[in-house]
């Protein structure tokens, strides 16, 4: 899923540079990106209530985004960026909360999903204001400031690369070797 998202992200960057209507490409990609991130959180979270909340909130947010996309094309990015970033940050907090309370005792940064989430929120919080003002910028301004997006894309992809590397490594529970066989009842 992450891999498909990266490919979609690369395609959108290419389209932004080549397309005449770059705002449309950016807006479309923002919705796709939110769908990817929300699905990732949906599959990552273990608590059923949290999963359900993510599902309902995401469907609701996508509905609003699609409506805004057609109704307020001019200001779409402003509201979309706020809505999706806030939701993803809330999902991340839910994810971190679940990880901290998890009994599997793995150090949080040994989990590949931690790095995916870190990449997501770093990228989204870094580009939130950029996307908020995309619609009100001229093409020249947008082109000049687009390096911010690229910078955070790089940060996000580094985090995702760490996640891919960790996903291949076997996980080791730091509490298990010492106290695993101490049942003496």
């Amino acid at each position: 899923m992450i891999f498909i998202y990266i490919i979609a992200s690369l395609l959108s960057n290419l389209l932004v540079q080549t397309s005449k209507n770059s705002s449309f490409v950016i807006s479309g990609f923002e919705i796709i990106e939110f769908v990817f991130f929300a699905s990732f959180f949906y599959f990552c979270l273990k608590n059923e209530r949290a999963k359900l909340s993510v599902l309902i909130a995401s469907i609701f947010a996508i509905g609003i985004n699609v409506f805004l996309f057609y109704a307020f094309e001019k200001n779409f990015d402003f509201w979309n960026a706020i809505l999706t970033t806030l939701l993803i940050i809330i999902y991340s907090i839910l994810f971190f909360y679940e990880q901290v309370n998890s009994v599997n005792s793995l150090i949080i940064y040994q989990n590949f999903d931690f790095w995916v989430v870190t990449g997501c929120i770093l990228y989204l919080s870094g580009t939130l204001f950029l996307f908020m003002y995309t619609s009100s910028m001229t093409d020249r301004e947008r082109n000049s400031l687009w390096f911010v997006n690229f910078a955070f894309e790089i940060v996000k992809n580094i985090c995702f690369s760490i996640a891919f590397l960790l996903a291949r490594k076997p996980k080791q529970n730091i509490l298990a070797p010492e106290f695993g066989n101490t049942n003496m009842t």
Partner: peptide, 20 residues
Amino acid sequence: HVPMVLFFGTIAMLALTIGL
């Protein structure tokens, strides 16, 4: 056209995220 809020907003959001 580009408000100051873009710069400081980005810095603040990053600080919050890294802090979290």
